[in-house]
Simulated assay, not measured.
Amino acid sequence: MTLPTLAEIASRETLRDGLLATVDLLKRRRASEINEAAVEGYIALDWMEWHGGSLRLTTTGENLCKHMTSLLARNGAQAAA
């Protein structure tokens, strides 16, 4: 087993940080605005896949989005308290 490199970790974090915005672009049918390298990264991480010429979230990607959304909601609720 090999450990991920620092560049791989940083790339994964960068992609994770931009995932919700990317999903928003997909929902608004503006996939052309998504960076090509980011698309390749999402596919390599199995967060997105090509399906019939369209880019969509995989189950892993959907679960990650749900997790990130719940963390944002929780942090927002704590900040309001």
Rank of each mutant, 00 (worst) to 15 (best):
Met1Val: 04
Met1His: 03
Thr2Val: 04
Thr2Ile: 06
Thr5Asp: 04
Thr5Val: 01
Leu6Asn: 09
Ala7Met: 09
Ala7His: 13
Ala7Cys: 04
Ala7Ser: 11
Glu8Arg: 11
Glu8Met: 09
Glu8Trp: 05
Ile9Asn: 04
Ser11Trp: 07
Thr14Asn: 10
Thr14Pro: 01
Gly18Trp: 01
Leu19Gln: 01
Leu19Phe: 02
Leu19His: 03
Leu19Asn: 01
Leu20Lys: 02
Leu20Gly: 00
Thr22Trp: 05
Thr22Glu: 13
Val23Ile: 07
Asp24Pro: 00
Asp24Trp: 08
Asp24His: 14
Leu25Glu: 05
Leu25Pro: 02
Leu26Tyr: 03
Leu26Gly: 03
Lys27Val: 10
Lys27Ser: 12
Lys27Gly: 05
Arg28Cys: 03
Ser32Arg: 13
Ser32Asn: 08
Ser32Ala: 11
Ser32Thr: 07
Ile34Asp: 08
Ile34Ala: 06
Asn35Glu: 14
Asn35His: 09
Glu36Pro: 02
Ala37Leu: 08
Ala38Ile: 02
Val39Leu: 10
Val39Cys: 01
Val39His: 01
Glu40Asp: 15
Glu40Gln: 15
Glu40Gly: 14
Glu40Ser: 14
Tyr42Ala: 02
Tyr42Pro: 00
Ala44Lys: 12
Ala44Ser: 09
Ala44Leu: 06
Asp46Met: 07
Asp46Gly: 07
Trp47Phe: 09
Trp47Asp: 04
Glu49Met: 11
Glu49Phe: 00
Trp50Ser: 13
Trp50Val: 11
Trp50Gln: 15
His51Asn: 11
Ser54Trp: 14
Ser54Asp: 15
Arg56Asn: 08
Thr58Lys: 08
Thr59Ala: 11
Thr59Ser: 10
Thr60Cys: 06
Thr60Ile: 08
Gly61Thr: 05
Asn63Thr: 06
Leu64Ala: 07
Leu64Trp: 01
Leu64Gly: 00
Leu64Arg: 02
His67Ser: 15
Met68Arg: 13
Thr69Tyr: 00
Ser70Phe: 06
Ser70Leu: 12
Ser70Glu: 14
Leu71Gln: 07
Leu71Phe: 04
Leu71Tyr: 02
Leu72Asn: 11
Leu72Val: 12
Ala73Ile: 13
Ala73Lys: 15
Ala73Thr: 12
Ala73His: 09
Asn75Lys: 14
Gln78Gly: 01
Ala79Thr: 05
Ala79Lys: 06
Ala80Glu: 14
Ala81Leu: 12
